[in-house]
Amino acid sequence: MSWGIVSMISEPDPLVLAWVAHHLRLGPARIDIYLDTPSPGLHDQLAALPQVHLHRIDGARWPDKLGPRPAQVGRRQRVLIQHCYDRAAVGWLLHIDADEFLRPAPAGNWAAALAALQDKVDYASVRVLERTHIGRPDPANIFDGVFRRPYPPDATEEMARIEGDAAPFLDRGFAAYASSKPFFRTGRNLPLGVHGPVNPRDFESHTFPGRLLLHYDGLTAQSYIQKKLRAIDQNPAAPLARIPNWREQNQAVLRHREDPDALNTLYARIKCLDPTRLARLDELGLILRHDLDLPAALEATFPGLSVDLSVAHYDSYPFTWQKHATPPLHWRVRFGARMLAYRLGFRV
């Protein structure tokens, strides 16, 4: 059973190269990368890989056939994955981001697992674990740390005691999302979303037991903060996001936008485990230790190419974005009132 990966990417080259090298080991028939920002170096390094197909979709090269280029990242993703799915030459299509890595399966490869699914299954989900640091991040390795499993909803009170002042920023222990990512069966005319089909109850689903997606959300403190600021600048309503932990993160980043020390402290609070917190999570079976051995994957895919995986090198890549147009006055007045109410402790 053939399968492929689609991703819209705007990340530093070292991450993209490691992501491609890792996933090629798992046997996809093709990887479609939509480059949201130009990267001539990636074109040169990936051109020799027959499974990898690069598409430029930055502001200067957005295809007219896709309609107007959406301003927000999530909306661009939905347009692109639908476009790729509708024309896919593989049996299954997985949508993941460049900071998400399929864990090699201990029993059977991914093609065999997909081929074993009943024909009625329209999409198959992979559970997600989120990377966290042990103590301070390793400055020499953007992929250091362990992975957290989501805790069950009925453990919320106990987990709040364990998480301490990080609890408001987490959803079941995750800073990003605790849901899954799907493989979509092609040829079914599925209307796609980022985490599943639109109206998922209309389609048959399956969740893989024991097969995981490892999410390196916030590769570095700088990249985490920059992405939060991008979300705020591109969506003026982001500080009042419906998802509570995202709302708390966005509020904190907005509040300390001009204070780098406070922003680094926020990252450490959310993303770094002290020994006591780590031990408690370990006792509950919520920690996975797994080394993807990405340097070996890079050497196998790009022999002789030196790839710097340090924090300093990763952070040296520019990260820019275009701000959302200024909303109309009546919207700003209404939004300002809601923000004030929120800061005064009222539910909005």
Rank of each mutant, 00 (worst) to 15 (best):
T156V: 13
E130V: 02
L102P: 01
K120F: 03
A167N: 08
L129R: 07
A89T: 09
A105M: 09
I134H: 05
Q118M: 09
S179K: 14
E163W: 15
H95W: 10
A116T: 13
D97F: 00
V128P: 03
F143T: 08
I162R: 04
A160G: 00
R56K: 01
D165M: 12
I81Q: 02
A111D: 08
A89M: 07
R69L: 07
D99I: 05
H55L: 08
A105T: 11
R69V: 04
P106K: 11
G135H: 12
D122M: 00
N141T: 05
F143E: 09
A166F: 06
K65N: 06
H95K: 05
P106E: 14
Q72S: 05
R161N: 04
A88G: 05
A98P: 09
D119H: 05
V52R: 01
P68A: 11
K120A: 14
P63E: 12
V73H: 13
S125L: 03
G67W: 04
R56D: 11
A113I: 03
N141S: 08
L102M: 10
Y85K: 07
A115C: 12
F101W: 12
R76H: 12
I81G: 01
A112R: 10
D99N: 10
D138N: 14
V121D: 12
I142F: 07
S180A: 15
H53C: 06
P70H: 08
V146K: 00
L94H: 02
F184D: 08
F169G: 02
F183V: 04
A167M: 04
V90F: 00
A71Q: 09
A107L: 12
Q118H: 13
R127A: 01
S125Y: 02
A112P: 05
V52L: 04
G135R: 12
D144N: 12
T186D: 06
M159D: 00
I96Q: 03
P63R: 07
P150C: 04
W92I: 07
D171E: 14
F169H: 02
I57E: 01
R185T: 02
L102G: 00
G173H: 05
I142H: 02
R148V: 08
Q118K: 10
H83C: 14
I142P: 01
R103S: 13
M159S: 00
V126G: 04
W92C: 06
G145N: 07
H83F: 15
R131K: 14
P153W: 14
P106Q: 12
S180N: 15
H133G: 01
L129E: 09
K65C: 07
E157C: 06
A89P: 01
P153R: 14
R87N: 14
D171G: 15
A60Y: 08
G135M: 12
L66A: 06
P68F: 09
N141I: 04
R76Q: 14
L94D: 04
Y151M: 11
A176D: 15
D97E: 09
C84N: 14
L54W: 06
P68G: 07
D99Y: 07
D119Q: 08
E163P: 00
F101T: 01
P63N: 10
P150F: 05
T132I: 02
F147G: 07
V52W: 01
